[in-house]
């Protein structure tokens, strides 16, 4: 069984910890508790006939990625950049953030995730928001309903093993 390090990053309040908790424990809490520093947890996933241990680092949100200690990103295999689909300020810097992450962690598989899709009233509203995001959004998720959370980590795991 291979182990891989995955980091959840993005601006504060985008729902990184909620996604983390939904994936690890299949739970959701309406209360917002800001993450202090970093929290590490793990989950074993199956990719085809192979088992993979994901060591997931949920790091405290910062407005810009260069504010996060660089050392956290070292040796990372997968990066999940989370944004809030209802708050444009959480994807305002996304292009330069992604460029920065590719530079400091060139071997990582990066997935851009638009979270809180349950708060958008219609498919049209979602399409409108996605068109405004400067980089392609790989997944739209809802930590609250669990929508696409398993798929996100399953596809990330497969990409890391490829």
């Amino acid at each position: 069984m291979i182990s891989k390090k995955v980091i959840l990053t993005g601006s504060f309040g985008v729902g990184k910890t909620s996604l983390f908790r939904r994936f690890i424990e299949n739970k959701f809490d309406e209360k917002y508790l800001t993450t202090i520093g970093v929290k590490v947890d793990k989950k074993v996933v199956e990719v085809g006939d192979r088992k993979l241990t994901l060591i997931i680092w949920d790091i405290a949100g910062e407005v810009k990625q260069d504010k996060v200690p660089t050392a956290y990103f070292m040796g990372t295999h997968g990066l999940v950049y989370v944004l809030d689909l209802t708050r444009p300020d959480t994807y305002k810097n996304i292009a330069e953030d992604i460029e920065y992450l590719q530079k400091i962690s060139p071997k990582s598989t990066i997935k851009v995730v638009g979270n809180k899709c349950d708060l958008l009233e219609s498919e049209e509203a979602l399409e409108k928001v996605l068109a405004e995001i400067p980089v392609p959004c790989n997944f739209t998720t809802s930590a609250k309903t669990g929508e696409n959370v398993e798929t996100l980590f399953a596809e990330l795991s497969a990409a890391m093993l490829a």
Binding site: G37, V40, K42, T53, W57, P69, A71, Y72
Partner: peptide, 20 residues
Amino acid sequence: ADEDMIAGMLTAIKAFVEDA
């Protein structure tokens, strides 16, 4: 506690201190 988690947290603390 889970050894994988201890290893991760120790590395995070170490990285934070060295970076700070």
